[in-house]
Design a protein around this nucleic acid. Structure first.
Lengths: 110, 110
DNA sequence: ATAATCAATCGTAATATTGCAATATACAAT
DNA sequence: ATTGTATATTGCAATATTACGATTGATTAT
């Protein structure tokens, strides 16, 4: 069907899945890395750096923005993006909680 | 096009994106949580616990298995799954490296 | 051997994603 | 006002994902 049955899962499960999905593309990984590494907002340089068309990058930025991972603000002629600290904190703690469920290697499944 | 241009990104970016994509579905989050919390392999109980059809769950398990996040072994009449510790370690460290790029709030984009 | 049980696979329908050309919008500089 | 520059949106084609009924394969119990 291509339609996720979101209603049978918890809010937290859906939220984490959506955050991961927003990051689950090499172009969006690259964009996030670029923004993080520059340690400031990044304005327009993305097109040309990644080998993707302007329309495509704009679309990826929109996706990251709509989930709240980044935020943009107009800076003169161009638009600047940076990590949204609030969502980022949620992401970090949610991921940590998720990964913490793993208690280490078990003796089954050998 | 629906076809990711994997060749223009690094091996690491593609690998992380694929791992995240494998987890980026509430059903697969739920499955992983269930396996982790039980702290042992989990055999067949998944169908009926999540509200999805057997074929659907089998498909999600296959996806998790094909990326290496879980592994399965036949145990009598049913099949058991558990976290694959090797891939899990890679996931944890890759994620940590990725998140560590974030240096905290900046003074731009206000 | 036959029936029962469990999981994998196949086939298919509905929907989502990816990518880009073309176009539109917004603003600055002339 | 017009031109140039930067970003967003639209429309579309190709491909991928999600879900499940039906079937198949494998194993156990009778």
């Amino acid at each position: 069907m291509g339609l996720t049955k979101a209603d049978i899962f918890s809010k937290e499960q859906n939220r984490l899945a959506m955050l991961l999905k927003a990051m689950a593309h090499p172009a969006r990984i690259a964009i996030l890395q670029r923004i993080m590494i520059s340690n400031t907002c990044i304005c327009g340089d993305l097109v040309g750096e990644l080998g993707l068309a302007q329309a495509t990058i704009s679309q990826h930025l929109k996706e990251l923005k709509s989930i709240g991972l980044i935020k943009g603000s107009i800076k003169g002629t161009s638009v600047c993006y940076c990590i949204d600290p609030d969502t980022w904190k949620v992401l970090e703690s949610t991921l940590q909680d998720f990964l913490a469920n793993y208690k280490g290697e078990t003796i089954c499944c050998q």
